[in-house]
Design a protein around this nucleic acid. Structure first.
Length: 203
DNA sequence: TGAAGGATTTGT
DNA sequence: CAAATCCTTCAC
């Protein structure tokens, strides 16, 4: 018999984002489309954004756009970047502490044939980058502020035991480095990725 | 009301 | 390396 995947509860995200972000690597992001199609991928790259961090969208003050980051954990924060792409963040830490984790890349594991994704090796880079990830999972700003749970069509599953075993054996597997694309706060080492994954946006 | 700039991606 | 493209924020 096999163990069912455990859904991540909001309380698990209720910790500082630099603590949650590395632990999200290895978890699965699951998307259930309105038409019933299921897309699922292993998170292979994340970045943390936290209070006092000049690169955080909530650094200056609360606005209509970033308001959800000030709320309780377990919700999505999705914004439009460069007028073209959406980026998915998961709100972390306790209520009133504005912080989030940017999900930057996935290794797709489950997806419908009918979506027309290319064959490997191109398939492995379909969700390599925050904008491409949202494209692949059909995530846009209409999902921003939603709870991460099955009835919203977007949720998280905990790491499988096998992943923990691998992490234990391969000690250099999880790489910590600086974040990408910033003009401020670029020195903070708040990006994590799986060294061996072909889906990482920028190894 | 306007201007500057952005947690990206793609093609030159 | 620069363009695409539009939303958000901040200044006036």
């Amino acid at each position: 018999m096999h163990k069912t995947s455990q859904i991540v509860e909001a309380s698990w995200l209720g910790r500082p984002s630099p603590q949650v972000a590395p632990e999200l690597v290895g978890c699965c992001l699951v998307r259930l489309l309105p038409n019933g199609q299921l897309i699922k991928g292993l998170i292979v790259e994340t970045e943390a954004y936290a209070p006092g961090d000049p690169a955080c969208h909530a650094y200056r003050r609360r606005t209509a756009r970033n308001a959800v980051m000030f709320g309780p954990p377990g919700f999505t924060y999705i914004y439009l970047i460069y007028g073209r792409y959406c980026c998915l963040n998961l709100v972390t830490d306790q209520d009133q502490v504005p912080s989030a984790v940017l999900i930057r890349a996935l290794e797709l594991e489950v997806f419908p044939e009918s979506l027309g994704y290319p064959p490997p090796p191109a398939l492995q880079r379909i969700a390599a980058g925050p904008g491409k990830l949202c494209q692949a999972l059909k995530i846009d700003r209409s999902l921003s502020g939603q709870a991460l749970q099955p009835d919203t069509g977007l949720w998280l599953e905990h790491r499988r035991d096998q992943f923990h075993q691998t992490l234990k054996q391969q000690t250099q597997l999880l790489v910590q480095t600086t974040r990408i694309g910033l003009s401020v706060g670029e020195n903070l080492p708040w990006r994590w990725y799986l060294r061996t994954s072909p889906a990482v946006s920028r190894p």
